[in-house]
């Protein structure tokens, strides 16, 4: 497939935004059970939510560049019964709204206690909003992943690994950003976030490598024989019927060499996983320089863009069988 930058930005940016929110809410949950020190609502949670929202808005803006008719985008919320894309279109703004409310409640310290656990832990409004947003964050990852994982003949994508990768890679970049944010806003949380960021990044590495191995072993189900229904072992296309290119030759081919694809694969394995883990490890050791952590995030984000580019480029659409020769 031809990787579209609008979609690369959309999926990576909202992945970061969701991951950052998950990190914030994880910290709040730990603090609720007194496993981490309490943080200032205003400086930490509210500002963190704003940061997450900025990434989500960036992703939303990028998504509009993908549409031919963005002014009709509202229509895309109507087919949620059948279309994962439609579901994403509903869940993304819902999630953004909940993150906004979450930040707002923290900003104004509007935290009425709604319930008390038997152990005496008070569940306030932010916890309730946060829980809903937490569920929506995961729902959004699943929707984004399923958009690709539900297309049965794009076999590189048709796998539960696709959804798992979206969750883990988005989560990893979000926790890395949370580490940077903590270095500025709450230094005592740097080790906590860096630890989780490393764990999630390594899990992401495992599942991404698993999908690379799976895809390397795929045998195409469609062949020229099934494409035109002629059972002869030797068929070659002489002409695709036109010379100047068409939507089919532009949308479904990445147009790069196999060597380029291979180098992108190694680049993203290094920059999305290995380098960030090493840089984040400085945060674990306690001698964290904010610049190093920031570098970890930037490198990982660029690495994930390369990863997403590769994700699209690697998928080989069966329609390509029909567009092999100009003559």
């Amino acid at each position: 497939m031809h990787p579209a930058f609008s979609v690369i930005f959309l999926t990576t940016l909202i992945g970061v935004g969701q991951g950052l929110f998950l990190a914030l809410f994880t910290a709040q949950t730990y603090a609720l059970f007194d496993l981490l020190p309490q943080q200032d609502s205003h400086a930490f949670y509210a500002h963190g939510s704003i940061l997450a929202l900025l990434f989500l808005i960036g992703g939303l803006i990028a998504s509009f560049f993908h549409l031919g008719r963005p002014e009709r985008a509202w229509r895309s919320a109507t087919q949620w019964r059948t279309s994962w894309l439609s579901r994403e279109v509903i869940v993304l703004p819902a999630f953004m709204g909940m993150v906004f409310l979450y930040g707002l409640a923290h900003f104004f310290e509007c935290k009425p206690v709604l319930a008390t656990l038997p152990s005496g832990i008070a569940i306030d409004l932010t916890v309730v909003i946060g829980t809903i947003a937490w569920l929506l964050a995961f729902a959004l990852y699943v929707c984004t992943g399923m958009i690709y994982a539900c297309l049965r003949f794009l076999r590189e994508w048709y796998s539960s690994l696709t959804v798992i990768n979206y969750i883990l890679l988005g989560g990893a970049s979000g926790f890395t950003l949370a580490t940077v944010f903590a270095a500025v806003a709450a230094p005592e949380l740097v080790r906590f976030f860096a630890g989780w960021a490393i764990i999630i990044t390594l899990l992401g590495l495992v599942s991404r490598v698993a999908s690379l191995i799976r895809n390397a072993r795929l045998k195409p189900k469609s062949t020229l024989q099934t494409a035109i229904g002629i059972k002869h072992p030797k068929i070659v296309q002489k002409t695709q019927g036109f010379m100047g290119g068409s939507f089919n030759t532009r949308e479904f081919f990445h147009g790069r060499s196999a060597a380029f694809l291979r180098s992108i694969k190694w680049i993203f394995l290094l920059t999305a996983f290995v380098v960030p883990v090493l840089l984040l490890a400085t945060g674990l050791s306690g001698v964290a320089a904010t610049e190093l952590l920031l570098l970890a995030f930037v490198v990982q984000y660029l690495g994930l863009m390369a990863e997403r580019w590769f994700f699209f480029a690697q998928a080989n659409h069966p329609q390509n069988l029909y567009y092999q020769a100009i003559g």
Partner: peptide, 26 residues
């Protein structure tokens, strides 16, 4: 009149039978 030109359907046609109109953006 309803199509937003997201091209998702063209990905979902295994035969590559859909073509996006670059002028009308549908």
């Amino acid at each position: 009149d309803k199509c937003i030109g997201c091209k998702y359907c063209s990905w979902a046609c295994p035969y590559g039978m859909r073509e996006f109109d670059e002028a009308q953006k549908v």
